[in-house]
């Protein structure tokens, strides 16, 4: 709605993925344009997290194709997909993502350091993002010493610090109250828009989904684009 799509950034066709006995994905489709925020919704166990993991190259699907920027991801090696995640993608999870023994600024700087940026420079950039997310005063604290909402904002700063083209957020507000959840969503979508990053947002909260431009519902491993349904 806010952007006129020049082309698709990330698309997936006919994704299938089976765990032990259950079909987590059963022919799911997906596409997103640069700068677009797409909410992936659906009941628990419908396969929305699996879809996100496949799209982000964390899990290889059993079959189907995923194209990022014209490149087929399903045939990439693990190292290639890791490199892609390092440089092109950002991640925010519900919890358990900040390294407890590193300080907040070190946590935010982590992805840059993975890419080989020097420590000093990485932490300078990290601090810049922490300012944008209004958590720069926490830089010397460890994750155990900050509140859930603050921690999640630190996590968002970390996801954005590399300037990713796609931001994957899996229930980013799941562990927060509505006020902190809204605040995180505002900052997240503002920051993503300002860098023209696409956001894949998995959530079961409609008020969080309302921050998206478009919504996809996953039911029983199949996806449904709600805009086209009208």
């Amino acid at each position: 709605m806010t952007t006129s799509p020049p082309g698709r950034l990330l698309t997936a066709q006919d994704l299938r993925k089976t765990y032990a006995h259950t079909h987590a994905l059963d022919g799911a489709e997906f596409s997103i344009h640069p700068g677009e925020v797409v909410a992936v919704m659906g009941p628990s166990g419908s396969g929305k997290s699996t879809l996100l993991h496949c799209l982000a190259g964390i899990l290889p699907p059993d079959s189907g194709s995923i194209t990022y920027n014209g490149r087929e991801m399903t045939t990439m090696s693990d190292a290639q997909r890791s490199a892609l995640r390092r440089s092109e993608f950002g991640f925010v999870f519900q919890f358990g993502q900040l390294v407890p023994e590193l300080t907040c600024v070190e946590n935010v700087a982590l992805p840059l350091r993975l890419n080989g940026t020097s420590r000093k420079e990485a932490e300078r950039a990290a601090l810049g993002w922490m300012e944008r997310l209004e958590v720069d005063d926490l830089k010397g604290k460890r994750p155990g010493e900050v509140s859930g909402g603050q921690g999640q904002r630190v996590a968002v700063a970390r996801a954005l610090v590399t300037g990713p083209r796609v931001l994957f957020a899996d229930e980013p507000t799941g562990a927060l109250d509505s006020y902190n959840g809204e605040r995180v969503m505002e900052l997240l979508t503002d920051a993503a828009r300002s860098t023209n990053a696409a956001v894949v947002l998995v959530t079961h909260e409609t008020r969080v989904a309302a921050y998206s431009d478009r919504e996809i519902v996953v039911r029983d491993g199949r996806s449904q684009d709600m805009e086209r349904a009208i």
Binding site: I58, F89, G96, Q97
Partner: peptide, 16 residues
Amino acid sequence: RKLLSALVAFGTRRRT
């Protein structure tokens, strides 16, 4: 375990 998986998700090399 969970933290390790998250670190891998955003592209940390296994070697690191």
